[in-house]
Design a protein around this nucleic acid. Structure first.
Ligand SMILES: NC(=O)c1ccc[n+]([C@@H]2O[C@H](COP(=O)([O-])OP(=O)(O)OC[C@H]3O[C@@H](n4cnc5c(N)ncnc54)[C@H](O)[C@@H]3O)[C@@H](O)[C@H]2O)c1
Ligand SMILES: NC(=O)c1ccc[n+]([C@@H]2O[C@H](COP(=O)([O-])OP(=O)(O)OC[C@H]3O[C@@H](n4cnc5c(N)ncnc54)[C@H](O)[C@@H]3O)[C@@H](O)[C@H]2O)c1
Lengths: 207, 207
DNA sequence: ATTTTATTGTTATCTTTATAACAAGAAATC
DNA sequence: GATTTCTTGTTATAAAGATAACAATAAAAT
C-alpha cells in the first residue's frame, strides 16, 4: 500500500490526538471532529482514512481504538525501533529529555559524541558513547534511526558514519543538506528556515 | 509579488549557503552549483531565481553578493524583526543559545515564562520576563514574532496571550495544533511526527 | 412506512509544486 | 567568421496534494 507523505504526517497527528481523546473515555469520533482538532477539513480526514483502508460506521463515525491500532500497524514495527542521538549538545539533550517514554515503539537508546568529557556517562538515563563505538553499538543495540544534532560543519561526516554503520533512516537537524544513498530515508528540518518563513510572511502582513 | 511557500523556504537556504561560499571568496555561481549544494535540480534553482525577478549572466552565472542582497530584501525588513521565546524550558533554552548572533535581522530579545524562579534574570544574555508583562513588553520592545516552547497543554493559552499582545507571526513547536485569527501567520513543526515519518519509511525499507 | 438528516466513501476537479523541454544568446573553439 | 558548447530564462507538462461534489445509506424524525 502506498501512502502520500502528507498522509503519513497526518496519521501521526491523528493518533497522538486520538490517544488523548480515548483517555477521556470517548469511543467513537466523526471525521469533522478529528478535522477540528487539527484544523483541517473533514474531507481530508476521510480521504486519509480511506487510504489506509479503514472503514467507519455511518452515523456513528470511527472507532477510536481501532483507528489508533491501525495507525500503529502502519507506522510502527511490532518490536519497535531504536534511535540514537548524534551529538549531545543543547538540542540533543533537549530531545533526549523530551522523548523519554513518549513513544513506546520509538526509543532513544544511546547518544554518541566525540567529546570525551561527555562520553562514558548517562544522560537522562541513556548511555553517552564515544563515536568510535558507533558501528558496533548500532549493531548490538539494534539501532535503525539516527538523529543528527552535531554542528553544521560536522554533519557530513556524521552522516557518513551513520551510513557506514548501516543505519536505515536519518532525521537531520543540522541545517547542512545531506547527500545519502537512496536506500537510507532522510528527513530534514531547518529551524532557521522556518523562522525566516515566518519573518517573510509577517513582513508581508505588515505592508 | 507572490512567491510559492516552497520557494521562500529555498530562498532562505540559498542565502545561508551562498553566504558561506561568498566568505570563501567566490563571486559568481551557476544554477547547477547551487543545486548541488542543496541536492535539488538546477531547474528548480533557476525557476526560483526567475520568480524573484533576478537575472544572471549567461555563461557566468549569478552574482553571489547581489543574489544574497536581493533575498535579504525579500525575507527581511530593513530594521529587522524582534522575536520572543515563550517558555524557557529545554527547547527554549537551546534555541536561545543557538540563535544568538546567527541572523542579524532576526533577534531573540526576550523569553517569557510563568515560573517565577526563571524570570527576572538573564539567559544567554537575554532577559527572562514574567508572562504578565507580555503585552507591555511586546509593544515596548517592538516584538513581532513569538516562538512557542511551552508544554502541550499550555500552548493554547500561550497563543491567546500572543494574539492579545498583537504579535504578527508565530512559530509553534508544541505539538498542539493552534487556532489563530487569519491575520497572524502560523508555522508549526512537530518533531514527533518527523520522527514517526522516518520510522514509517525505515520500516518500509526493511520489508 | 415514508421522509428527512447526517455521515461515510469515493470520484472529479482544482491548486500547488516539481520536472522537462527548449529557444536565445554569450563565450569558446575551430 | 562559422560552429559548437554551455548556461540562462521561460513555457509546457507531470506529479503531488487539497478541496469539492455527490452517491449511498443508516439512523432519526415524521
Ligand atoms: N540548539 C538549537 O536550538 C538548534 C536549533 C536548530 C538547529 N540546530 C542544529 O543542531 C545542531 C546542534 O546544535 P546545538 O545547539 O545542540 O549545538 P552544540 O554545540 O550545543 O552541540 C553539538 C554537540 O555535538 C558534539 N559533536 C561535535 N562534533 C561531533 C562529531 N563529529 N560527532 C559527534 N558529536 C559531535 C559536540 O561535542 C556537542 O556536544 C547544529 O547543527 C544546529 O544547526 C540547533
Ligand atoms: N525538548 C524538545 O526537544 C522538544 C522537542 C519537540 C517538541 N518540544 C515541545 O516543546 C515544548 C517544550 O518542551 P521542553 O522540553 O522545552 O519543555 P520544558 O518542560 O522543559 O519547558 C517548558 C517551559 O515552559 C514554561 N511554561 C509552562 N507554562 C507556561 C505558560 N503558561 N506560559 C509561559 N511559560 C510556561 C515552564 O516553566 C518551562 O520553563 C513542548 O510543547 C514540547 O512538546 C520539545
Amino acid at each position: 500500500m502506498h501512502l502520500p507523505d502528507k498522509t503519513v504526517e497526518r496519521l501521526s497527528q491523528y493518533r497522538r490526538n486520538l490517544l488523548i481523546i480515548l483517555a477521556k473515555g470517548k469511543e467513537f469520533i466523526f471525521s469533522h471532529e478529528i478535522a477540528q482538532l487539527l484544523h483541517i477539513t473533514p474531507v481530508q480526514v476521510r480521504r486519509d482514512i480511506m487510504l489506509i483502508g479503514y472503514n467507519g460506521t455511518l452515523r456513528k463515525g470511527y472507532d477510536i481504538k481501532e483507528l489508533i491500532d491501525l495507525i500503529g500497524k502502519i507506522i510502527d514495527t511490532d518490536e519497535g525501533q531504536n534511535v540514537c542521538i548524534m551529538g549531545l549538545g543543547n538540542l540533543g539533550k533537549a530531545i533526549m529529555k523530551y522523548f523519554s517514554g513518549k513513544r513506546p515503539k520509538l526509543k532513544i537508546v544511546a547518544a554518541f559524541d566525540t567529546n570525551q568529557e561527555k562520553t562514558g556517562q548517562l544522560y537522562a538515563g541513556i548511555p553517552v558513547i564515544h563515536i568510535d563505538e558507533l558501528k558496533e553499538k548500532v549493531r548490538s543495540m539494534n539501532i535503525s534511526i539516527g538523529i543528527i544534532t552535531v554542528p553544521f560543519d560536522k554533519a557530513g561526516e556524521t552522516a557518513e558514519y551513520l551510513v557506514a554503520a548501516e543505519i536505515k533512516g536519518i532525521l537531520n537537524f543540522s541545517s547542512k543538506p545531506l547527500n545519502l544513498p537512496e536506500t537510507i530515508y532522510l528527513e530534514e528540518y531547518d529551524m532557521v528556515t522556518s523562522l525566516e518563513k515566518v519573518a517573510y510572511h509577517t513582513k508581508r502582513n505588515k505592508q
